[in-house]
Amino acid sequence: MTDVVMTLEMIQASQVGTKAIAAALAVGLTGFASAWAELTIGSAAVGATAENRDVFGMVLLLTVLPETIVIFGLVVALLLLF
């Protein structure tokens, strides 16, 4: 049985790969969470606007609030990569 020897290049490549996976997970999972939150809030927002058109501006704001979750994910991903 021969020992597996990792070269410095291999270790560096592995680190880059792990960072890329972590960044992808950070953006992907937060994107999924934002979508899920917006689905629920959006349904309620459409219902509320159907009953009272005056609340359109307010519910639009509430619907896009979960976008901040994916922005946090994006920031984390960028910090990981650069």
Binding site: L39, T40, G42, S43, A44, V46, G47, A48, A50, E51, N52
Partner: peptide, 17 residues
């Protein structure tokens, strides 16, 4: 499908109430 129809209808009912 997802429970969006519940959220939509229940919000409308809450406003009507």
């Amino acid at each position: 499908g997802p429970a969006t129809n519940y959220v939509y209808a229940c919000t409308r009912m809450r406003i009507r109430r």
